[in-house]
Amino acid sequence: MTENQPFIFPKWANLIPLLIPPILLGGIATAVFVMWYWASPKHIEVGYQPTQPIAYSHALHAGELGIDCRYCHTNVERGAKATLPSTDTCMNCHKVIKTESPEIKKLQKSWKNNQPIQWVRVNAVPDYVYFDHSRHVNSGIGCATCHGRVDKMKTVHQKEPLSMAWCVDCHKTPEKHLRPVDKVTDMAWVAPDQKKLGATLKKDHYIDPGLDCSVCHR
């Protein structure tokens, strides 16, 4: 026995196991943080602001000049897609306004060549989500509720996460966001008493968004 001595661990080795609980708890906390926030649209999608082919400013057109959203996004009340305006819509005014600006020159080029402008899409949901603009707009969900104050954005960016949790939140409690249908495109509108108004609107208009899978996924 004497010739084979066991290995004697140093005294500080007894302290190593004390590290196990913090490492374990830290690991779990990290996993939840990564799933819940870091890898979620809240973190990776909010604030997405691509450079557009033309430096078009919503702040100028919708904000300062007060053009209604529906002037360009014509289909928003009638169809699933709000639709982007064709070059013709722009040219209604820009045939005569600021024709010498370099940005408007790009517009004229598109018009002359009969080539649509390649706008970069900002707010998007996956293809397996059957989102319908008309359904929401006609129920009294304001543009600003999902898109933010676009009338103050020089370059459009994504305001809300557009994650499923975010959709579901409103589908559960639509009264938090409902407004009169004629105020839908009013970006600056704020309800005097959202709680009371929301409840009334929900009741009067039979708003029941539903939470079944097939409401959004078909």
């Binding site: 996993a31 939840v32 799933m35 819940w36 890898a39 979620s40 649209p41 809240k42 996460p161 994650s163 499923m164 949790a165 579901v168 939140d169």
Partner: peptide
């Protein structure tokens, strides 16, 4: 595969 575990996620599912 993480769908199998009850981890809070962006789908609120």
């Amino acid at each position: 595969a993480y769908y199998m575990f009850p981890v809070p996620n962006q789908m609120a599912l």
